[in-house]
């Protein structure tokens, strides 16, 4: 089980600030990694660089041994924190779209998940509520048999019932040959999912390690460690 993702000395500079500062991180296959931190800590910047929406100022990123590009985009399944589907589409259109562009899209799994989320193919994207959109996006993202799943705030802004469904779907999707990166600030709800956690502040890694080991070492939950690390 080698490293699926290798990040070396990653920096992203803007005029007014450094979003990421010399960040290095390795992620093995089969691991679920939680990237935790307050808003502005660099979580989303890191994610966008991994998915190719942003370019780093310095440093290297390797996903499955490749630089970020067309190949990595074909093995990375990304869930952004916004509604990114074209709003003229129906759910059926979105399915066909994913099937067309991603050879790793599993239509059967997708349909099962869609059922589980209580959505139907003839619904129009523009008529879905926020929670339904989130569920749909997650359905599409998890139905791909990708090597790396990147979920950016998957349960933020979603009601508790939908939240449970989403967490269920994430857990059931786990498999040893893929990895997952999940960013969230809702630590308590998600902490039992993580193998490893990374605490980010102002573009730097404050703390990282195996979740259970950290619990043992500190005698605290990850949520409490988060409060301790980021608290006033």
């Amino acid at each position: 089980m080698g490293n699926l993702v290798e990040i070396k000395g990653l920096s992203k500079n803007y005029l007014s600030k450094k979003a990421l500062n010399n960040l290095s991180l390795d992620i093995e296959s089969g691991k679920v990694v939680g990237i935790l931190g307050p808003n502005g800590s660099g979580k989303t910047t890191l994610i966008k660089i991994l998915t190719g929406l942003l370019r780093q100022s310095k440093g290297e990123v390797f996903i499955d041994g490749h630089n970020v590009g067309v190949y990595t985009k074909s093995i990375v399944s990304y869930l952004p924190d916004r509604n990114f589907l074209y709003n003229w589409m129906t759910i059926d259109d979105a399915f066909k779209f994913y099937k067309d562009f991603y050879s790793d899209f599993d239509e059967n799994r997708g349909e099962k998940l869609l059922d589980f989320m209580k959505l139907e193919k003839n619904m129009k994207i523009s008529s879905l509520s926020k929670g339904m959109n989130e569920k749909l996006n997650l359905t599409l993202v998890l139905s791909r048999r990708a090597k790396l799943y990147i979920l950016d705030e998957p349960i933020a802004g979603v009601d508790p019932v939908a939240r449970d469904k989403i967490l269920d779907a994430i857990i059931n999707n786990y498999n040893e040959s893929s990895s997952m990166i999940i960013t969230t600030h809702l630590v308590r709800d998600m902490e039992s999912l993580f193998d490893e956690v990374v605490f980010l502040r102002e573009g730097e890694i404050l703390l990282k390690g195996n979740a259970e080991a950290l619990r043992e070492e500190k005698g605290k939950s990850i949520d409490e460690i988060y409060k301790e690390v980021f608290g006033e």
């Binding site: 998915t51 190719g52 929406l53 067309v70 190949y71 985009k73 074909s74 990375v76 990304y78 952004p80 916004r82 509604n83 990114f84 589907l85 074209y86 709003n87 562009f101 991603y102």
Partner: peptide, 13 residues
């Protein structure tokens, strides 16, 4: 707009 998140993460040049 947000749809760029979909278009620019597709495996296309």
């Amino acid at each position: 707009e947000d749809r760029g998140y979909l278009t620019f993460t597709l495996p296309l040049t």
